[in-house]
Simulated assay, not measured.
Amino acid sequence: MRIVLAELPNPLLPATYDIVWSLIVVAVLALMLTALWQALRSKAHTGGQQLLWALLIVLAPVLGALAWFVLGRQHSAAGPAA
């Protein structure tokens, strides 16, 4: 029986797969925590609005955080100047 190296599974594939998914998880957590921190510290929103933003960010981490950066921050940036 002859073993051909091309037929053996790549031992680095699981490690690469794990590293990529770990980096994705870290990026999502960083995005979520940054959005959550900014939403809770926002002076332009009331306590109820901050709570709703926090719930949206926690329940839908990627979409909620992106919504905060696109919609929530525009409101808080325009709020005090108006």
Results as ranks from 00 to 15, higher is better:
M1K: 09
M1D: 11
M1G: 14
M1T: 08
V4R: 14
N10M: 04
N10S: 14
P11T: 09
L12I: 06
L13I: 07
P14C: 10
A15Q: 11
T16V: 15
T16K: 14
Y17P: 00
I19V: 08
I19Q: 13
W21S: 04
S22T: 12
V26N: 06
V26D: 13
A27T: 07
A27K: 07
A27L: 12
L29A: 09
L31R: 03
M32C: 08
L33D: 06
T34P: 00
T34V: 04
A35P: 03
W37R: 14
W37K: 11
W37F: 15
Q38P: 00
A39Y: 02
R41D: 12
R41V: 00
K43F: 03
A44G: 15
A44E: 08
T46S: 15
G47M: 05
G48N: 10
Q49D: 06
Q49T: 09
Q49P: 00
L51Q: 08
L51G: 00
L52G: 01
W53I: 01
A54T: 03
L55G: 06
L55K: 10
I57A: 04
V58N: 04
A60L: 15
A60P: 00
V62D: 09
V62G: 08
V62M: 09
L63M: 10
G64I: 01
A65T: 12
A67K: 02
A67P: 01
W68A: 03
F69P: 01
F69V: 02
V70D: 00
L71N: 04
G72D: 03
Q74C: 03
Q74Y: 07
S76R: 03
G79Q: 13
G79V: 05
G79T: 07
P80F: 08
